[in-house]
Design a protein around this nucleic acid. Structure first.
Lengths: 113, 113
DNA sequence: TCACATTATGCCTTAAACGACATAACGATG
DNA sequence: CATCGTTATGTCGTTTAAGGCATAATGTGA
């Protein structure tokens, strides 16, 4: 038996940000393009773009600075708000994962009764 | 912006227990019948029974002692294993909820940068 | 032995999340 | 000014999970 959990940020009852979107943004940061990031994560550009837009709408911030045209057709880079969001989310998520496992062991494994 | 999370116990990759099943078992304990418990939670008997069975199969334990016939048609009461599971789950869940909110405030609200 | 309220279970329908397809717009570069 | 690879977006199909319908089985009490 093992514990699993999923956490996400909400705004007005809708999912605003979670693990998948964090990975997506990190890939964009690394690759300089939303299209390339989507490919790397094995999802369609359409799906990736939709998630970004959903977060932008929910939180009322822009996540990407985009350009079209030029050598390579264009690209996308992270805004300062996006970087801050990633940082905080990662910090929070890592901390929760650690606490979760520790508490789980404490209550479900070592504890008798 | 607020944090949300869902946690559940898994066994062999399948959901074994989570909040909904805890509420269901607690209702059975209070009402003495799975049918009555399902009604109270606004779900069909079929759905409630299916969840109980799924947990029993996943964890390899019995959750309910059942009888049929007699005054009232029968009923169900919790096994000792069911009570233990509820207790541990509640303890764990409550602790996580508390930690989650505290950490969330710490990282997303009060922290600057 | 009949009635009744419960447990027990197969099966089909429906809802909703998710991703894919198609198509437009953009604009620096050559 | 044509090309190319990107961003942008509506729409539609598919898969999967959740729930409901129908029906059997149980066994005590009247």
């Amino acid at each position: 038996m093992q514990i699993k959990f999923k956490l996400w940020l909400e705004e007005n009852g809708g999912v605003a940000f979670a693990e998948g979107r964090r990975m997506l943004l990190e890939a964009v940061d690394r690759l300089g393009s939303l299209n390339a990031a989507a490919k790397e994560l094995g999802m369609s550009y359409r799906a990736a773009w939709g998630k970004i837009k959903a977060t932008e709408k929910a939180l009322g911030i822009r996540l990407l600075d985009v350009t079209t045209g030029g050598k390579g057709g264009g690209g996308a880079t992270l805004t300062a708000e996006a970087r801050e969001l990633i940082l905080k989310y990662k910090k929070f998520s890592d901390r929760m994962t650690s606490l979760m496992e520790k508490e789980f062991r404490h209550i479900f494994v070592s504890t008798k009764q």
